[in-house]
Amino acid sequence: MLRMIGRRLAIATPGIIGVIVVTFLLNRALPGDPAAYFAGPAATRQAIEEIRVKLGLDRSLPEQFALFVRDLARGELGTSLTSGQPVLAELLARLPASLELTLCALLFAVAVALPLGILAAARPGSWIDHLTRVIVTAGNSLPIFFTGLLLVYVFYYLLGLAPPPLGRLDPFASAPRTVTGAYLIDSLLMGDPALFWASARQMILPTLTLGVAVLAPIARMTRAAMLGVLSSDFMRTARASGLSPATLLYVYALRNALLPVLTSLGGVFSFLLGVNVVVEKIFAWPGIGSYALEAVLASDYAPVQGYVLMMASLYVLLNLLIDVLYGVIDPRIRIET
């Protein structure tokens, strides 16, 4: 197993190197003179020159790249212009909010999409199959910002069931003591059910918005994979052996069907991580997406660069996790490597 993880990491390495190079190049592609940017509008020419030297911008491109890699290795992602704080610290402080939201959305989507896909495949042509097709087609066409806003309008404005879309907690509540950074978990650790409920209420709409968007691909993949597996030779053997329907469906069919579903989760993660920005904007969610967005709009590039790097690293890690899970389920991968 460890060998397999090592191998996967080796496969991922060129991608990681590519990510670092691209982020570096994007940084250099910044319009205008970065030194003038950092120095601010009132700076003298001399001050700008000083900053240029300090930033290493007077050196050759390869040298600059070496410096960039060295800083990365030390965990230095630069400082934010607007707040003057180190970017890494700010990103890490906001990461739990984004992760909590993303994971909840993923859990919700999987919890709905897997049963839908399974039932649709187990009973082709039934109402649940048709429902799944409608959801899949509609889900692929929904602009996520549109669904988010509609949910806000219906559940906050019309029905008054949801709290206003203003972040992780309403302004009067105080955040739980930070242990994991995820409010749902921290509030429980504090033994404060009221706080848990307050943050859960805030979570519902953004989770639904994100979850509904990724439900469709997961359901489609589950349905297709289950259909493939159900008509396979080994399922016929299993049925010929008179195994119970539950064993057939869950032990034999589902475990095999999970493999392609797991593979397709890579695309789902790519989507989830990207579209976080949109949801965080709608719900004023203080995650890294909205942080990066503020930075982009303020032309503050260091946070944006840190954000892109962090997202890409997260994505690499998640893909690694998918590979490991795949190996756990599929002996053909586990044993052959």
Partner: peptide, 16 residues
């Protein structure tokens, strides 16, 4: 493909 695609698009636009 190593990037979440929308994030890459954001990064590109932020830069250019």
């Amino acid at each position: 493909m190593a990037f979440p695609l929308f994030v890459l698009a954001m990064g590109i636009i932020a830069a250019v």
